[in-house]
Design a protein around this nucleic acid. Sequence first.
DNA 1: CTGTTAGCGCGTTCAT
DNA 2: ATGAACGCGCTAACAG
Lengths: 336, 336
Amino acid sequence: MVTIYDIAEKAGVSAMTVSRVINNTGRISDKTRAKVKRVMDELGYVPNQMARSLVLQETRLLFLIITDITNPFYTTLARGAEDAARKRGYRLLFGNTDEDPEKENDYIDAVLKTRADGVLLAPAGDASLPHLEMLRRHNVPFVLLDREVPGAESDVVLGDSKEGARQLVKQLVGAGHRRIALINGSRTISSARERLEGYREALKLNDLAYDEALVLETSFGPRSDLTGIEAWLDGMRPLPTAFVAGNNVLAVELMRTLRSKGLRVPEDVSLVCFDELASYAEMDPFLTVISQQAYQFGHLGMQMLLDRIQSPGDPAGRRRIVLPAELIVRRSVRQL
Amino acid sequence: MVTIYDIAEKAGVSAMTVSRVINNTGRISDKTRAKVKRVMDELGYVPNQMARSLVLQETRLLFLIITDITNPFYTTLARGAEDAARKRGYRLLFGNTDEDPEKENDYIDAVLKTRADGVLLAPAGDASLPHLEMLRRHNVPFVLLDREVPGAESDVVLGDSKEGARQLVKQLVGAGHRRIALINGSRTISSARERLEGYREALKLNDLAYDEALVLETSFGPRSDLTGIEAWLDGMRPLPTAFVAGNNVLAVELMRTLRSKGLRVPEDVSLVCFDELASYAEMDPFLTVISQQAYQFGHLGMQMLLDRIQSPGDPAGRRRIVLPAELIVRRSVRQL
DNA sequence: CTGTTAGCGCGTTCAT
DNA sequence: ATGAACGCGCTAACAG
């Protein structure tokens, strides 16, 4: 491996001069600078980031930990985060937890060992609290995305889940539906709780009774974790006329199950959900959804994180951004 | 920051003993081991990966560089790669190039600086050759995914693009189509070339003339880079009765454009493509596709890479894996 | 403008 | 079974 000492020797200067050329620090004569640069090219020198980090105590490495890398909501978010990080000269390390706190724990471990400068985290759920405390204890700045964790006073970028759920239900009620089911993620996840609450509020507002049998609590994904949908459908007599899905993965899985039973949307039942379905939305805009600004989640979150990192003294209180939800009406709701 | 020296002092041993406990190397009495471990817990010690890498000359860090993180083909591939890496104790750093050799160059730079142990790369195109030479010069093992780069003798995992294209055309011809168009990625990408070639071969085999006007060469994505579709459609008189799309992104974009012109699939025109459309395929299996084993691309590629890394002496010639393509017939082709 | 010294946190070598 | 000295590649602080 080529080191600054190799350069120094061949250029007839000291290692320190080479270091200065590389980092553009201090005053160097144009002549020596040119010579050093030439030697660097000749030898194909590449700075060793490890050695640098060790002395500088900063890695310029950030982690983005998401729960489902195959969910377009999160990949779009990831792109937003990456763009913002690149723009400011940071590298992004991705982690994928599959909604599993154990895997999340592994990644937190990696963050700590790697001495990453910060973390952007879509927490697996309330069980993530110890992980956040770990980060705090080791002074690793972090920002939560999409979900809050009770007990963790931290910066966070959220969607307006409660309002979103209200709007979806309102839309259904407006179309004449009165028997409305909800398929949702685990109640250990703040966004799932909010969506349930919004759903209940909207029912109440419309003088509709809340019926536990109409609510299925399963998982936001990945697909293989989704169970009990079929049994749930079979257990509801009569079938609801409309469904609200807590996210896109649930909507897809529900639709698949409905189809396998010969039920069509919207002819037989209506369906609305949170989040777009990526390509599907472009190809055949069909589902009525609450569209969240996935890219902004990542982009804003990353900016908040970098602000924290770059002004560490600043105690500026907790920042909590709630992005508005936008209802997009399409063809998946039938007028009764 | 807590270091092994802090532990050593508090435990009344030398730093070396602490290091041995951490790495389970050498012989240590159970008593001192226990004491050291207790102190480590008390102080919340986390090994510094940077310092470790510096002395061990290995980072256990791998890069996965893909061209479009919002394309489900690549995210599925990424999951395969990640699973394989985790299983063998390596961390994975993702990079997203948007098919742009410049961005790819940035990531190659990052690989070198970070002293990553290896790279899994879906190259942006033939222009990636210098990047590969760079990696070679610095002895960084790499495996190419999904695309070859002429001139680079390297391990690679490919899909059988030519055969896939043949099958798609054959399927269309079998349904009575004779005017078949192709919308494809840039010819600077090996898979695009192969798909074009397979298309041409299949035409010839069926005594159909090759017509340049029926072929549009654009980009495999991301969506914002796709241009000229509308003009292309407007320029073809008469319109083809069927389209082959070189990948899923192109299929979606083409379908969107067709729809905007009031053309329906398959009623007005037929459409087949490479790669599944993720959720769309589950929700409403509609497009006839060549389905590639995306997960396997990543999984096998990662295994090859780790094999290289873990037996560096082994000169074992270039390995080239071609994964078979599977035709899945659905409803997007109309029988003429 | 340039060089010397010291140390970032850790593991290898060689002693004891 | 345990420790001391050294070096991985680099830069901050100081000297000249």
